[in-house]
Simulated scan of single mutants.
Amino acid sequence: METRRKKTSPRTRLVTGTLAAAALTAGTFGAVSASASTPERAQSSAASAASSAVADRNIHQTRHLTVDAATRAAQAALKAAREDGQRVTVAVVDRNGNTIAVLRGDGAGPQSYESAERKAYTAASWNSATSDLVKRLESTPTLKDIPGTLFLGGGVPVAAGGAPIAGIGVAGAPSGALDEEYARAGAAALGAR
């Protein structure tokens, strides 16, 4: 039995041959490329891990007081002052001295707002109660010249893990000792000092 072969045009043969060659080339290139990229990926992963380790050594993480916690502390300090019949302003700043919350009590003097913020900033900056810092002025009087600070009783730091994370400042009571008592009430509301 004789099989008749259908004649194909030269154009069809050319297109078919080209497609077959392209498929063969793509398969070979894909296999070579896949086996070649495995070491590159391993090197890339190793480089990425090394870069991450270097980056971790160059990054310092800190803790921050939340707005809710700062507000709770300010409210507790204001409540303690109100119970004593005092009209004060309470400020809470973060570790960098940025104001998180300020509550100006009814009838608090106009100067109390800035004073409370500066006491909070001073306490956070030195991680020390401002009443303790007042004593340092005797030996280092130029401390009072540092911008934004106020060396009067009424500011206390807030720490977490042994590091300062905030400061609470109170101003407006007749003495720094009372202001500090109210600031400590605010810190106590956070479970600090």
Rank of each mutant, 00 (worst) to 15 (best):
A46L: 05
R11D: 09
G107C: 09
G109I: 06
V134C: 00
A159G: 07
T122L: 04
V170E: 03
A34N: 09
G109C: 03
A23R: 03
S128D: 06
V88N: 00
A77S: 08
R63K: 06
A189H: 08
A171Q: 12
A91D: 00
W126H: 11
K6Y: 11
R82Q: 15
T130A: 05
R13Q: 06
H60E: 11
A46F: 01
A166Y: 00
R82D: 15
S48L: 11
A50E: 15
L14D: 01
A171G: 15
A159L: 10
V170W: 14
V92F: 08
A70Y: 08
V102W: 04
A50M: 12
R95N: 14
D56S: 15
S175W: 04
A183F: 06
S115H: 03
A22T: 10
A173C: 09
A74S: 13
S33K: 01
P174I: 06
G153F: 05
A49Q: 14
G154V: 10
S35K: 13
L78C: 13
V54W: 06
R82F: 12
A22S: 11
G17D: 04
R57I: 07
A185N: 01
Y121R: 09
D179S: 02
T71C: 02
P39S: 13
T99M: 09
K6T: 07
A34S: 06
V32F: 07
S52P: 00
V158S: 01
G105Y: 02
N96C: 02
T62G: 02
L103K: 06
R118G: 06
K7P: 12
T66K: 03
L65A: 01
A23Y: 04
Y182F: 13
I165E: 09
A36K: 12
T16V: 11
T25R: 05
T12V: 11
K144L: 08
T149S: 15
R63H: 02
A123E: 05
G162T: 05
G30C: 00
D68W: 00
N58Q: 14
T16H: 02
L150P: 01
G17S: 12
A20R: 11
R4E: 10
A20E: 09
R184Q: 03
A177N: 09
V92L: 09
A53F: 04
V92A: 06
A42S: 04
P147H: 10
V90W: 05
S131T: 08
V90Q: 00
V134R: 08
D56N: 14
G154N: 08
V32Q: 09
G172Q: 02
A124I: 05
V134T: 12
F151N: 02
V54I: 12
V54D: 08
T3L: 15
R136N: 11
S9F: 05
R104D: 13
A31S: 04
T149Q: 13
A73W: 03
S175E: 04
R118A: 14
A188T: 04
G85C: 13
A160P: 01
R11H: 03
A116K: 00
V158A: 05
Q75N: 14
A101M: 02
N98M: 04
G167R: 03
G154S: 07
K79Y: 07
A120W: 06
A36V: 14
P141Q: 09
R193W: 02
T12K: 07
I146G: 12
P174W: 10
T66H: 01
A192V: 07
P147A: 14
P147Q: 15
A69N: 11
T18V: 09
T130Y: 06
E83K: 13
A171S: 15
R5I: 11
A73T: 03
A116H: 02
I59K: 15
